[in-house]
């Protein structure tokens, strides 16, 4: 409940900021009545109205102390989320330096590890098979120019594609 309130207040502030931005759009005299800010302002006013309504509902719930049973399945580990995000983003980031094949192998091993997989056989076999399948699909069948890396990694990639 408190989380919903925080999200709504954050959204309201963001909507307010965007509303302010609409006045910085370049004005064209020919379209004075309905310039570039006309439609975004309508949407933002409607959005802010909805958010305020949602905030009122949340505050009323808090005052009435409506008990909410927490769904155990929905409990989220932010640590796991951040690890998964960092590993995924890291994959995309290092791909340009080490090339598609090596980056994919390393990423898949790490992503499995983040999810709690500890069996060495799975950690080695899964990335090998998946990378091979992705290599065949994206490089051999679709001819996509995926990154080859730099230096020694590029030389290695050039052996493959």
């Amino acid at each position: 409940m408190r989380g919903d309130l925080v999200i709504n207040v954050f959204l309201l502030l963001l909507a307010g900021y965007f509303y302010k931005l609409t006045y910085s759009f370049k004005q064209i005299s020919k379209y004075d009545v309905m310039g570039p800010g006309f439609w975004p302002r309508i949407v933002l006013v409607f959005l802010m109205g909805l958010i305020i309504f949602a905030i009122v509902i949340e505050i009323r719930k808090m005052i009435k102390k409506v008990s909410q049973e927490e769904d155990k399945n929905q409990k989220i580990s932010y640590k796991k989320f951040i690890f998964a995000l960092v590993v995924s983003f890291g994959y995309f980031f290092i791909m340009r330096y080490v090339g598609f094949v090596i980056a994919t192998l390393v990423f898949q091993g790490m992503f499995l590890f983040v999810q709690g997989v500890r069996q060495v056989k799975i950690l080695i076999l899964t990335p090998s098979v998946l990378t091979l399948l992705l290599f065949i699909l994206f490089i051999k069948l679709m001819y996509l120019p995926l990154p080859k890396g730099i230096g020694i990694f590029r030389s290695f990639s050039l052996l493959l594609y």
Binding site: S88, F92, L130, L134, L144
Partner: peptide, 29 residues
């Protein structure tokens, strides 16, 4: 599921990269 998740995430990143440039992947994230 960890194997499924790993395949899907690889597809998401490579798929977004395949469709455009680096900005496509950033937007996907």
């Amino acid at each position: 599921y960890p194997i499924m998740a790993t395949s899907i995430m690889s597809f998401c990143i490579i798929g977004s990269l395949a469709l455009g440039d680096v900005n496509g992947v950033l937007l996907m994230f």
